[in-house]
Amino acid sequence: MFTDFTSEIMSYPGGEKITACMQCGTCTGSCPASHAMKYTPRRLISLIRANQRDTVLKSLDIWKCASCYTCTARCPRGIKFTDIMYILKNLAWKEQRKEEDHNIFGFYSSFQDLIQSRGRMNEAELILRYSLKTNPYKLLEFAPLGMKMFLKGRTAIVPPGIKNKRQLQEILRISQERGGE
């Protein structure tokens, strides 16, 4: 469908300007997570342009983006790198399910399941689902903070949800069928 990885990225909203990159590294220098990455934002752009699709999508570095948009705010060429990170994560999620990193897979899928079933997020249930999916012993780690939050009245007693769940589930389902992933 695409001749190379660059044109694939460019086909998604936010990916258009990737070829304007001049490898100045402002993105990497601005990124609060780049210190922990082997493939930093600048290197990721370079790898995309060198058509290294597998290397990029298999790298867990793309999951280190916290979506702070500093790179986007600062890029002198107007590249929306935060959006490119989202595109990369979407592709990786679809194709290389993150079994290799249990935590990431467990958290993102727990969140997604929770929204699909209730329409609203609640931290306590998210942590519960996430821990049960990854490692139930995590509940012990979260317990002290969870207890404090509970005592401060900062947890929802009744799991929150929307009334018209069917409508939400319906539009999510149709979007899935129509070329959604």
Partner: peptide, 9 residues
């Protein structure tokens, strides 16, 4: 979270 895993959602 959702934008990371499914752009349509």
């Amino acid at each position: 979270v959702i934008p990371s895993v499914n752009q349509w959602q």
